[in-house]
Design a protein around this nucleic acid. Structure first.
Lengths: 206, 206, 206, 206
DNA sequence: CATGAATGAGAGTTCATTCAT
DNA sequence: GATGAATGAACTCTCATTCAT
């Protein structure tokens, strides 16, 4: 009994260290990626500020890109849980659809602005890796489908879905950046501006 | 007299060579930046395809970033000349104002898509260097002033100028990218879509 | 009694495990050495395919070279036993002396060609470590003594023993390699060729 | 005139340095390869003992293997010249054929034993790279053809050419090694021993 | 004894930059 | 101003080895 207890204890301790180091590297990765950009960042940059030995990095990741993926994966799953637990009412019309999607997105990036900064500044890389990002919430193709469905069912107005697919992300993105960097806009204000602007844009152009 | 003539001649030759090499490096820089991205590009990459010696690079530029700036400067001044010589009628209303600005912008990037690709793919770098880009045409603060002026004079409707300043570039940008990469939209179609969408967006949101 | 029995039991188990792991490592070493060559092989390569932990390696060996020595030692002792138990008739003349030695050698390497491949491909290492190899059977100094003895006793002809000492191994070696790699020659055929060639060589050169 | 003279001078100086560095690296490579073996040698080992910067290595070679090839190429061309200038009489019979080939080979390796040591100790690598080595003189397939031709023409006896192809190199090799390492045998003595032994071996075994 | 994460030395290689020519 | 070899810092990555569990 003591035997197995000790085993579990030691196993836990080890797992803890292991988990801690992984977290250390990821946290350092976030900082470095925000400061230098993904392309300019080096594995050494990341490992340097952790205090770990250089070789240790490779016990956890094969490259900085894997760290990038891990950062997004971690964040995505975090968001995923939150979404599932925090069920929103099913949107009744296009306006509330937009409002729910956008406010959810803005809330998340407001909580973890660093991840958003990495995404925004390295959009190439992010799309190149086709990472399952938190932008899943605004994931264009996915949203497009929902909109098409809504139009079919007669719940949404007949907007230009291609235009929707093209324009939604950059508009929300630029307002989101303003929100995070200038810190003058609240999530609610930012949401309203986005919704208002997009709604008029889509409804006006038939 | 012959002396001085010779001097001038050789001086001219030098200027010519100097100018040629500068152009060579810039041209090579454009290719490399488009192909590899600014961050991944190296001075060696740039100099390699020019046939020049590596040391020669440093007679013209201190770093690849200076090449980047030169690329944009060259292009910006090119556009600038064009705009000044090619005076458009003064816009009478907000819609024609938008249409003129946007169509001018789209025409230029349609002619030199490479420069636009560099800008789009390396947006953080471009903004970090606060480069005087061809987007000068859509240069937010400049346009903002024009819009404010227009509103004051009662020629333009009282739109949300802050929203205008934030949202115009990303919207035009994303449609421009679609135009260049997919090659399905003509400059005119693209212009109309932008104008239509933005106009409704601004006019709808009081 | 039960106490001691249990002790013996556990001791045996340990010996068994220990022996098993040792065998595992040696077996893996053989594969790795054949595939990559001794110089290119790493401890990691060897331990990887055993399923053991990297640290476990050092409970048995200090380095890959020790594994190499162990491989040869194991094989040598295996051969040694076989030879002692399987007494051949004492050779009556030089030809049958050569035939017995060579056929014995070729039989062994035919059964364990991997070990022979390691030796052949890493000849410098093998000699550098002055490993007590299965070539003990053809171990030059040992054979030389036998030949000198045979000459003294008048049973063998007066051949050039220094030449014998130098030339026998490479000749047998190259034919052995042919036999193993091309798989066209039987052990018997190979033996005959060696014997024939060497015999003529030695007897011809007074 | 002075202009062009100076140019040539400076160009020569540069070429000289360049050539010197290449030679430096090759010389260092020879030492390192002899001491550590090709497999264990590192680029850093080679560059270390030259006093050059690490990066300089890569101005001349891509890898240590390229150095190895260069070593052999240099030596091979050196031998080639020598052979062409030093025409031997065409061999009249098999014995003189063997004697000429072997004495030529032994003379060369006697002059540059280091290269021979590299070849012998790293036979794998040498054959893997199918380097045009000085062993061209004993190049088996080439010699084999000559022997077959000689037999056809009735100048050489009908020996077993496959056995010849297999056995010649290792026999000469082992005696050559003895000659170089023990320094007791002269080239002439060594040649005679080889010729004598091989001749009897081949002629005896029909 | 077995485990396997941590370590840091060191290998290969690239690169921006200098500087003698 | 053009050249291009030399430089050495810095990067990626692997490895043998240790040691707490």
């Amino acid at each position: 009994m003591m035997e197995s207890e000790r085993k579990i204890e030691s196993s836990n301790k080890r797992e803890l260290t292991k988990s801690n180091n992984r977290s250390l590297i990821i946290a350092s990765g976030v900082n470095v990626f925000v400061e230098k950009g993904v392309a300019e960042a080096t594995v050494r940059d990341i490992i340097r500020s952790t205090g770990l030995a250089s070789g240790t990095f490779y016990n956890y990741f094969k490259s900085k890109e894997e760290v990038l993926v891990a950062i997004f994966d971690d964040f995505a799953s975090e968001i995923g849980e939150n979404i599932r637990s925090n069920k929103h009412a099913v949107p009744k019309d296009f306006e509330s659809f937009l409002r729910i999607k956008i406010s959810t997105f803005l809330n998340y990036i407001n909580n973890k602005p660093e991840i958003y900064l990495i995404m925004s500044n390295n959009h190439n890389l992010v799309t190149n890796f086709s990472i399952n990002t938190p932008q899943i919430i605004l994931e264009i193709d996915y949203l497009k489908e929902e909109v098409i469905e809504g139009i079919k069912e007669g719940v949404f107005p007949k907007i230009d879905v291609d235009l929707f697919a093209l324009v939604t992300r950059p508009v929300v993105d630029s307002l989101a950046q303003e929100m995070i960097l200038q810190k003058k806009l609240s999530v609610e204000e930012c949401t309203e501006r986005c919704v208002n602007f997009l709604l008029n844009g889509f409804l006006g152009s038939k």
